[in-house]
Design a protein around this nucleic acid. Structure first.
Lengths: 231, 231
DNA sequence: CGTAGTCTTGAACTGCATCAACCAATGTGG
DNA sequence: CCACATTGGTTGATGCAGTTCAAGACTACG
């Protein structure tokens, strides 16, 4: 923490955040320790002692949970400005493994320090609580997706969610590159890789998407939303 | 808040909490406002302005989320000592509707006050953060269940989870009464009511359970765990 | 340039949903 | 207190969405 004391900082100038996860751009501007990761590197493993949460400055991450039976599932994808590692707070440790899907840079936010800051600064406290509750809400969204939607609706929902998050970062919401594999998408959506692949092809044939490998162009946004509604 | 100032209280004497959601017995002992509800009454609706979180003194609750398409899903069941209403913190409002599954009593914990207390008292802050992150972790568990398990494993997991929570409250972990309907179980587990019913019957025939209406006796706990492992 | 990882597509299978009928428990009004 | 309605639950028959198994194509990276 070179120079400036953490308590003197504030997050009150952070713009109100909408959708799925945090968008705490401001966190990533703060002079905390940074860390660079290459594609495939892990930030922490499930069971590691909890010390910090992480804000993404650049790149793309996934979190993977494993249950007692050894089933693995991707429980989240995170992009620039979003936070991960929020599980495991005050628990025995992280309950997931976080790894980079491309070369990335993150900001390490030691949680003890975050708590100190939250106690000193009400705006900071509110921000922290908002981040946590937003992650709870995101979980509910995934539950609904897995519990009530068919394969087409799941993929459509996933793509529209990605598009919205790219849009808020100033990227094109209709033309982007998927950083994750079909298998990872399937894991997240509770589908097999073949089903994901077939559904992509189907969307392409239906004129909703243009897909070439990892690049996706959303041709008919409304159409995708209709797929959602049709479920 | 009659008499005692909130800042003077502490939660540091609360025993460390394990499993699925909060077990903040201590919260319910505090002299906050209480509220009695009859079976079927709702505590809050999705979209209501967020003001408080709720601790259960007695009874049983469910939370139900609704998405844009109007799909409903039960996202949680909560029993004595557990907290609900954690979503919607610092968001526009609750994202679920909470209602009582039987005549119940809850403690209203105004969140602004909780935040004040958390800023004054580090133990309280830790407790609050633990509760929030535990709810995130619970969400991950449900995602895994919905994303990777078959019907039998889902129901087995559900019953074993209930059993563990009853046990920690001093009730029998092998003989209890379900407070929710088959439909509500199905909604929570991402299954149709007929599948839930059939799976109960199947477990009964297999000698794992004895079921009569809402009363469930777990005859072969190990067997249920084997069902989990078999998935 | 070759090998490993990723993706696509086809064909057959299966687990859960759907549709439908019936039963049991609980509640209501005459 | 009984007749009837309502709600919740069970069970069977059938259908289909998504899985599984299998084979081949494309891509990327050392």
């Amino acid at each position: 923490m070179p120079g400036v004391s953490p308590q003197s900082r504030t997050l009150s100038n952070v713009s109100p955040i909408s959708h799925p996860l945090a968008d705490l751009g401001a966190f990533s501007e703060v002079a905390f320790l940074r860390r660079r990761l290459k594609r495939g590197e892990t930030v922490f493993h499930a069971g590691d002692e909890f010390r910090a949460i992480y804000a993404i400055r650049s790149g793309f991450f996934k979190t993977v949970n494993v249950d007692q039976q050894g089933h693995e599932q991707v429980t989240g994808f995170f992009m620039r400005g979003e936070l991960f590692g929020l599980d495991g707070i005050c628990a025995s440790g992280y309950d997931c493994t976080a790894s980079a899907l491309e070369d990335s840079e993150i900001v390490v936010l030691p949680f003890a320090l975050m708590q100190d800051m939250a106690r000193e600064n009400q705006a900071m406290q509110r921000e922290l609580h908002a981040v946590l509750s937003r992650e709870i809400t995101r979980g509910h969204g995934v539950m609904m997706l897995l519990g009530t939607m068919g394969a087409e609706a799941r993929l459509a929902s996933f793509l529209l969610n990605l598009a919205a998050r790219f849009a808020r970062r100033g990227y094109s919401p209709s033309d982007f590159v998927l950083r994750m594999t079909r298998g990872e998408i399937g894991s997240y959506l509770g589908l097999k890789i073949e089903t994901v692949s077939r559904t992509f092809s189907e969307f392409q044939k239906g004129g909703l998407l243009q897909v070439e490998q990892k690049r996706v162009r959303i041709v008919d946004r409304q159409g995708l939303q209709r797929v959602l509604a049709a479920s």
